[in-house]
């Protein structure tokens, strides 16, 4: 069966410098299938520089992989014809980080909703267009009467971000890629935006790819999670297992660092080793976390760890779990049941 959208052994290298000699591996041999038959919320988590945004950009077709391929309905993105490209642009929608810079301050916010209706000819008349806009706004919990006709500066960041979700919804997409949609919004408003994303998943059957550095919200909105570290997959699987009992030392570090709003769950208990570990990677393909890892072993500095399937719904790329069976990277979707 062909997946709706698939990354197959994708690697992305950015080169810079005068002779293009300085190479940064943003994403290293990653495979992922996104099915829309069973709409799920998948989270891609990682710190700055982990490659999570690069991954999102490739799924949206804004970047081409250096090696490997991105497939849309089984067809390489680079060989889509015009109609297929158009269908792709409609079926995959994006919500970006900054709810301030996506709006043109000279137009009322209606503009961002009218554009897709016009471009994709969703409505036959002005009245029909208006009805569509109102329907989409209501679905994300906004009052159309209080929203339409206003200028961006009259609305809060949270409202603007929900209009972006409404815009994505207008096109009845099959997948929404939300890249840090709440990181610039107040903590008290985050919940409403995330809840509207979850609602789209539940009520409209839209798959969501939630890209974030915030494991707390990832835990709450998603079914599955992929944790990236410097372009490589560290751990993936069912979000309950990954957050509650992380197996990869990097995920453990991330989970320990979350400032949980919980008096009993304090930071002080397990101090993060801030120094470097004794193991220094000797090979460029070694485990990228080896130099920070408190459990590093000599083997970690020599070769890249394969994915070990530590339990049926989760895998970790770490030699600590050598006794488990190796899961080929292409079969990562077997974890997401």
């Amino acid at each position: 069966m062909t997946a709706f959208l698939e990354l197959r052994n994708v690697t992305k290298v950015f080169s810079s410098g005068i002779l293009r000699k300085k190479r940064t591996v943003a994403l290293d041999n990653l495979s992922l299938k996104i099915d829309t038959d069973r709409p799920m919320v998948k989270a891609i988590a990682g710190e700055s520089g982990s490659g999570k945004t690069t991954l999102g950009m490739m799924l949206m077709g804004f970047l081409s992989p250096t090696s490997g391929s991105v497939l849309y309905n089984g067809k390489d993105m680079r060989s889509l014809n015009r109609d297929e490209q158009r269908a792709f642009r409609r079926e995959v929608q994006a919500v970006f980080q900054d709810p301030f810079s996506v709006y043109n301050p000279f137009y009322p916010v209606d503009h961002v909703l009218e554009m897709p209706i016009e471009k994709f000819k969703l409505a036959k008349s002005r009245r029909e267009a208006r009805a569509l806009m109102e329907e989409a706004l209501s679905a994300v919990g906004l009052q159309p009467a209080e929203t339409l006709g206003r200028f961006p500066h009259q609305l809060s960041g949270g409202q603007r971000q929900r209009i972006m979700v409404a815009r994505a919804l207008l096109l009845k997409p099959r997948l929404i890629i939300a890249d840090e949609p709440v990181s610039m919004v107040d903590a008290s408003l985050r919940a409403t935006i995330l809840e509207s994303l979850r609602k789209l998943n539940r009520d409209f059957g839209i798959s969501i790819l939630y890209i974030t550095h915030d494991l707390t919200t990832a835990y709450h909105v998603s079914n599955h999670i992929l944790v990236l570290y410097r372009g490589s997959l560290a751990e993936a699987g069912d979000v309950e297992h990954v957050i509650k009992q992380p197996k990869h030392p990097y995920t453990q570090l991330l989970v320990d660092s979350i400032p949980w709003p919980d008096l009993e769950h304090s930071w002080g208990k397990n101090r993060i080793p801030s120094g470097k570990s004794a193991v220094q990677p000797v090979s460029a393909t070694a485990c990228k976390f080896a130099d920070r890892c408190p459990h590093a072993m000599p083997v970690c500095g020599q070769q890249p760890p394969p994915l070990y399937r530590v339990d049926p719904t989760r895998a970790a790329a770490c030699f600590l779990h050598q006794e488990a069976a190796v899961l080929p990277r292409e079969e990562i979707n077997a974890l997401f049941v």
Binding site: L189, I193, E195, R198
Partner: peptide, 23 residues
């Protein structure tokens, strides 16, 4: 009270509650 309720916690993974209205 609403501010504390809107926080995602490790327990009770359920509906996320925001604070209605704007500042």
């Amino acid at each position: 009270r609403l501010l504390i309720q809107s926080l995602p916690k490790l327990e009770d993974k359920g509906e996320l509650k925001g604070i209605p209205g704007i500042a």
